[in-house]
Write a protein that binds this DNA or RNA. Structure first.
Length: 356
DNA sequence: AACAGTCTCAACCGCTTAGCC
DNA sequence: AGGCTAAGCGGTTGAGACTGT
């Protein structure tokens, strides 16, 4: 019963993706948009199954993905949401800007589960743990608070569901299926693509710039590994960037902007050319950017950089867009304790207050 | 330096869901 | 209504990195 796995075909490559494959995939998606994954291997010549292409895109190449350490705020969100939603990682991911469900799932399985277990088994002996969690509170207090939170969330959800206005109006948009439409580069609505773009995705220019960011980071690692690849990396990247230019996608290299400035600036500056120096600058830009650890300030900066990020922007949500009761609950949790600046606090500061 | 154990996370597998005919 | 197919999702795996001895 059931159809055979698509990846069982002979000649389908498995395992880690190479930079060349990534560039091919990104270039293709840039031109045609995500969706219709079935046709991707055929049209690109990639020896990968459609599933693998989709996964590579959604978990690694998709614009705006943040990698590296989770901030304490993100951690807390995950803990809350996991308690509330269970292992529905995609749903949880919709509340966390820039994080993929896979990332969250991994983080939960490798870090948070252990951390909670440690807390719940009462392994604390009254002093602060190395990771910053305070153990000064009596055993069981944290669990009680979590239960209270869950109860509050349930109430909030009930209220939300009983509202006349459909709750879905404010419910977080699935970032994978509803990318923003700031600049719809995909004008294939009337072409011969017999399959609708199932996600209805239009990618904004800066989204793809962020994809260039991902590719550049990846190329950087690749060239580090094998110097001989550097030349190929350059040519491959040029092809990718030139593609982007053809599509009027922002690819202005770092030389034209200061570190930390938004790639989307390139869209305003119109056509941009990419030179080897520019690429090097881009690579170094990304290097310095990735060197900066993922603290809250960084997150804020990145959110700013990715204003048209496909996922809901929590800061925007807090500032302008009406929140769901659940979101409010999550975001106001700190504020209710008199820690309005919690998100902006350093990890050390935050950890000492969060679980008290 | 060498080895073993542990950790991390990208990628895979297989089931479920959604959409189309 | 039911079958088929593509996409989505969550659990699991395994290679490489890291750490301790």
């Amino acid at each position: 019963m059931g159809r055979p796995p698509c990846c069982d075909r002979v000649g389908v490559k498995k395992g880690p993706w190479t930079p060349e494959e990534d560039i091919i995939l990104v270039s293709y998606i840039q031109e045609h948009g995500p969706g219709n994954w079935r046709s991707v291997p055929t049209n690109t010549g990639l020896l990968r199954c459609s599933k693998s292409c989709r996964l590579r895109w959604t978990n690694y190449l998709r614009p705006g993905i943040k990698r590296g350490n989770f901030t304490h705020h993100e951690e807390k969100m995950i803990i809350h949401l996991q308690a509330l939603l269970g292992n529905r990682w995609a749903a949880i991911a919709s509340y966390l800007p820039q994080r993929t469900d896979n990332d969250i799932k991994n983080y939960w399985n490798t870090h948070l589960k252990k951390k909670l277990k440690t807390l719940q088994t009462g392994s604390c002996d009254g002093h602060e743990q190395a990771d910053g969690y305070s153990c000064s509170q009596p055993k069981g207090q944290w669990e009680r608070r979590l239960q209270t939170d869950i109860h509050m969330a349930k109430q909030a959800l009930c209220e939300a569901l009983s509202l006349d206005k459909p709750a879905s109006t404010h419910f977080p948009i699935d970032h994978k299926n509803n990318l923003s439409l700031e600049t719809n580069y995909n004008n294939n609505d009337d072409d011969d693509d017999d399959k609708p773009n199932q996600q209805g995705i239009g990618i904004s220019s800066s989204n793809y710039a962020s994809s260039a960011d991902n590719i550049a980071r990846l190329l950087e690692n690749w060239t580090k590994q094998t110097p001989e690849n550097a030349q190929r990396a350059h040519s491959g990247a040029f092809s990718f960037f030139n593609n982007a230019n053809d599509l009027n996608v922002a690819t202005t290299p770092a030389t034209t902007r200061g570190a930390g400035s938004s790639y989307s600036d390139g869209a305003q500056s119109g056509s941009a050319t990419t030179t080897p120096d520019a690429l090097d600058s881009l690579l170094s830009f990304n290097s310095s950017k990735s060197d900066a650890s993922d603290n809250s300030a960084n997150l804020t900066t990145e959110i700013g950089l990715l204003q048209d990020e496909s996922k809901p922007n929590l800061e925007d949500a807090a500032g302008q867009v009406p929140l769901t009761l659940l979101e409010k609950w999550l975001l106001d949790d700190a504020a209710a304790q008199g820690h309005e600046d919690l998100i902006n606090m350093s990890v050390d500061e935050t950890t000492s207050t969060l679980f008290n």
